[in-house]
Amino acid sequence: MYYDLLFDVDDTLLQFEKGQHDALCTIFKTYGVSYEEGLETFQSISRSLWEAAERGEISIQTILTTRFTKWLEAFELEGDGVALDEQFRASLSTKDYQFPGARQLLERLAPSHRLSIVTNGVGETQKQRLQASSLDDYFTHRFISSEIGVQKPHVEFFEAVFHQLPSFQPERALVIGDSLTSDMEGARRAGLASCWFNPNGKPLPSLPIDYVIASYDELERLLQWKEPVRVRLDYFQLEEDKVYVGPKEALASFEWSDSWQQGERQLKAYGFLPTTKRATDVLDFDTRRHYTVTYE
Rank of each mutant, 00 (worst) to 15 (best):
G191H: 10
A279Q: 05
T280E: 13
G191Q: 10
L130A: 07
S179V: 04
V212T: 09
F139H: 01
D258I: 10
A102D: 00
N198V: 08
V9H: 03
R114K: 15
A160R: 10
W225H: 03
Q262I: 11
H163P: 00
A90P: 00
R129F: 07
R114E: 05
E17G: 05
S259D: 11
E107Q: 14
F143I: 06
D11I: 01
A23C: 12
V243E: 00
L251V: 13
A132Y: 04
S44K: 12
I148H: 03
V33C: 06
D178L: 05
W256M: 08
Y138Q: 04
V231W: 01
S253G: 09
L222V: 10
T280V: 11
R114I: 06
R278T: 12
F16W: 11
V245A: 06
F158D: 00
G186D: 02
P274K: 07
W196Q: 01
S91M: 12
P166S: 09
Q126V: 06
F7A: 01
S257W: 07
D22I: 07
Q237L: 15
Q98E: 01
Q261H: 15
H141M: 06
A187S: 09
K277E: 05
R142N: 06
E147H: 13
S91A: 15
L77S: 09
Q262R: 13
G186W: 01
S91N: 09
E159Q: 14
I144M: 03
G121E: 01
L14Q: 02
H141V: 04
G101H: 04
N198W: 07
Q169A: 15
W71E: 03
L106R: 01
E249F: 13
E36V: 13
R55M: 12
V155N: 06
K29G: 07
D137C: 13
A269T: 11
